[in-house]
Each structure stands twice: as C-alpha cells, then as structure tokens.
C-alpha cells in the first residue's frame, strides 16, 4: 500500500475535514485497504478519535466505528444481547491477531459481499451514523452506499431483539460460502442474507410471511425460508455455484429462525 501523506488527527471534526476538503482516505484497521494497489494521496488514520467503544444507552447499544472484531467478540454487553449473534458473526474471521486489528467501521464502509458482520447488522435493523448527524438505516446503506465522502462514527442497535447467525464455510477461517441472520425485533421478524456472493440484502416478502408472530409454526418457517430463495439473486464464484447457494439457504434460515423462536 502506498500512502503519500499520513495523518493521525485527534479530533473527529479534523478527520472529517481532511476526508471532505482534502480528499483523504479513512484508515480503520487497514487490513483490507492494504490490498488496494492504488496510491493513497492522504491517509487519515482514525485510531485516535475515541471511536473504540461499546456502550449501553437509554435506547439501545452503540458501537463506535473503530471497535475491533475482538472487542465485539469478547464484549459482555454484546454476549448478553441478540443471542450472541454479533460475536458469532465475527469469531470465524481468520484469527485473534487479525481480529485485534479489523474494525466494524471498515467492514461497514467497504460494503463487502463476503461480510458476516454486515448481515447481522442488517437483520437487527441497525442504524449507521455518518458524522456529524446523518443517521441511515444500515440495510439501505449497504444497498445504496453514501454519496459524499463520509466518516462513519458509530452504529445504533436496538435495546432488545432476539437474533441468530448461521453460515456455511468450506473451512473454519475461509470466507463464507453463504451467511444468514435472523432477528425478532419490536417491528417483527427480519431476515438478511449475505455472501451470495454479493452483499447482504433483506428478504421483505419472507419477513412479511413471518410477520409479528412470536412462535411461527414449522410450516410457516419452511415457507418463509423457501420464499427467501425466490426473492434473492445468487451468483457463482470459486467457492460455490449460484445453484449450490440457493440450495443451502433454506437450511441456514430454518436453523436461524428455530434458534430465535426457541
């Protein structure tokens, strides 16, 4: 990775100014950025902006953009929430040494197809806060991106939701072949599917089939899982064909829904 100029601002206003006015590139963990062959005119290191936090608020949980995967995986606050789905989504990513580096903000900003964490955030109905005060629905943001150069400050998660993450990988620390997350939130059931291999998407019609039902029947679950395969598009890559992904999705979804339903 080539960086012409490097800056490590101490304030988030200064970081945003460098990104907006001087065309700076935000640097989070840099683990993915470093694979980029392009020369970076100005690298803006976000590590000293105080964005490494997980905190409970009156309305839910906030996670700062620079929070590492390892911190998410070992957080007691998160272990007690969402069925541990956030920890389950990050703990497969290579090893502890990489998870001490990579961040939730870099993952969200990249809107990567393979992302496990983005699938859980979408299912939970998380919001992403672009500094200073743009609040976007996370699932919509993954679909559409953000227009101007932006700086992700934090993520807002609901106070309560039951959730589960399920995935299929060829080997433990490889990229996923397919992933899915299911949540029962105050507005009803939510289902997100990622690594298709394209980025995570909600399945609105499958979600509507489960509605707000606290304990959907096994038949309703099977129907919703089948519906998800109809409304999503799948692609082929070196890990699996589109047909294979489509074939395994109902099993991943059934498992996750049953885990949430109990």
């Amino acid at each position: 990775m080539e960086i012409v100029e490097y800056s490590r601002p101490r304030s988030i206003d200064e970081a945003l100014r460098l990104i907006r006015d001087r065309g700076g590139t935000p640097i989070a963990g840099a683990a993915w950025l470093r694979t980029n062959a392009k020369t970076m005119k100005l690298g803006v290191d976000l590590s000293e902006l105080g964005l490494d936090f997980i905190r409970e608020t009156a309305s839910g949980v906030e996670i700062g953009a620079m929070t590492s995967y390892r911190r998410i995986e070992t957080s007691e606050v998160l272990a007690q929430r969402f069925g541990g789905a956030l920890g389950a989504a990050v703990c497969h990513v290579v090893g502890v040494q990489l998870r001490n580096i990579i961040t939730i903000g870099g993952t969200a900003a990249g809107r990567y197809g393979f992302s496990d964490l983005n699938t859980v955030l979408a299912a939970l109905g998380a919001k992403v806060v672009l500094y200073p005060n743009t609040v976007l629905d996370f699932a919509k943001y993954v679909e559409a991106g953000a227009e101007v150069p932006f700086l992700i400050e934090k993520f807002l998660l609901p106070a309560r939701a039951r959730a589960a993450f399920s995935q299929f990988r060829i080997s433990e620390s490889d990229f996923p072949v397919l992933n899915a997350a299911v949540a029962k939130t105050e507005t009803g059931w939510r289902i997100a599917v990622g690594a298709r291999p394209a980025a995570t998407r909600l399945c609105p019609r499958a979600m509507a089939m489960l509605g707000r039902e606290a304990r959907p029947s096994d038949a309703a679950i099977a129907e919703a899982a089948a519906q998800a395969t109809v409304e999503l598009r799948f692609g082929s890559d070196i890990r699996a064909s589109a047909e294979y992904r489509e074939a395994i999705l109902p099993a991943l979804l059934r498992r996750a829904i049953l885990e949430v339903r109990g």
Partner: peptide, 26 residues
C-alpha cells in the same frame, strides 16, 4: 503477507496482532 497465516505475529501494547497487516506508522 496477506493476513492469513499468523507467522508475522507480534504483540503491540501486549495484544497479538499480525504485523503484516498493521500499519507501521500506527
């Protein structure tokens, strides 16, 4: 040198990290 093998592990402020994926400037 791609973040996959762990051979380059060092501790930074006591935490294990992959030095191949850790910016020296940081």
């Amino acid at each position: 040198d791609t973040g996959n093998c762990g051979a380059c592990t060092v501790l930074v402020d006591g935490k294990p990290v992959l030095s191949c994926s850790y910016l020296a400037a940081r």
